[in-house]
């Protein structure tokens, strides 16, 4: 899932302080799971904004909340088509994708981000999310025991580990596992250490961000 973190409420207040009617728009997917921008968090933010406006003596300010199943799909974003025009601003607590798609679909309404979108990752335990994928566009997990050196090695090494690996930890942080130590341990566990002998060719980074904004186009599923 896409992992996001809450933005300080002061920052969000800075975006909407001159608005009279604000819609806090949450998303029922990734940001709900990482407890940054789901229905509950939108409720908390809307409540805080209402109290802020009331405390500032702006009696006619209105802050509403609405949750969409997803903000990265057109059909769900259409659900607010009838009501969007009445707002001076939308604070989207979805990931950056949702914020941008909302802004794209509601061209004349300011849309502000309510969270900081961080990475694609997993829930290790409640309250701890860690990165697993950088979407490089050319997956090599088949050769690395299911552990990604692009996302998990600080140097993105393809033939690691480097000299900074010490007791299974990375030199940049003693709490950070060395990705290549994890890869070797895993290859031993699945009895495929022969894969470690494979030298990787130079990676074609054109499928990563180096090639500019990317797209996936599949004619077989297009209508």
């Amino acid at each position: 899932m896409i992992v996001a973190d809450k933005k300080p409420v002061e920052e969000i207040i800075g975006y909407v302080r001159d608005c009279k009617k604000v819609l806090v728009l949450s998303c029922n997917e990734c940001v709900t799971v990482c407890e940054a921008g789901g229905k509950k968090e939108a409720g908390m933010l809307a409540s805080a904004l209402r109290m802020y406006f009331a405390n500032q003596g702006i009696a006619d300010a209105q802050v509403d909340e609405r949750t969409l199943e997803r903000q990265c799909d057109q059909e769900y974003l259409e659900e607010i088509r009838d009501i969007a025009d009445q707002y001076d601003a939308i604070v989207s607590v979805a990931c950056g994708v949702g914020v941008q798609f909302t802004a794209e679909k509601y061209h004349s309404i300011p849309v502000f981000p309510g969270v900081n979108t961080c990475f694609m990752g997993v829930t290790e335990h409640r309250g701890l999310w860690t990165e697993r994928c950088q979407g490089c566009g050319q997956c090599i997990l088949a050769y690395t025991g299911g552990i990604c050196p692009v996302a998990r090695c600080a140097k993105r090494l393809f033939n690691g580990p480097c000299g900074g690996s010490s007791n299974g930890k990375c030199e940049i942080n003693k709490d950070l596992d060395c990705a290549w130590q994890l890869i070797i341990d895993r290859l031993i566990a699945i009895d495929r250490l022969d894969l470690y002998e494979k030298l990787f060719d130079i990676k074609d980074w054109s499928t990563d961000r180096a090639g500019g904004p990317r797209k996936v186009e599949r004619e077989d599923v297009q209508i």
Binding site: V9, A48, M51, Y52
Partner: peptide
């Protein structure tokens, strides 16, 4: 923390 941030 939230209350302090919004001036309450």
């Amino acid at each position: 923390r939230l209350l302090n941030a919004i001036g309450v």
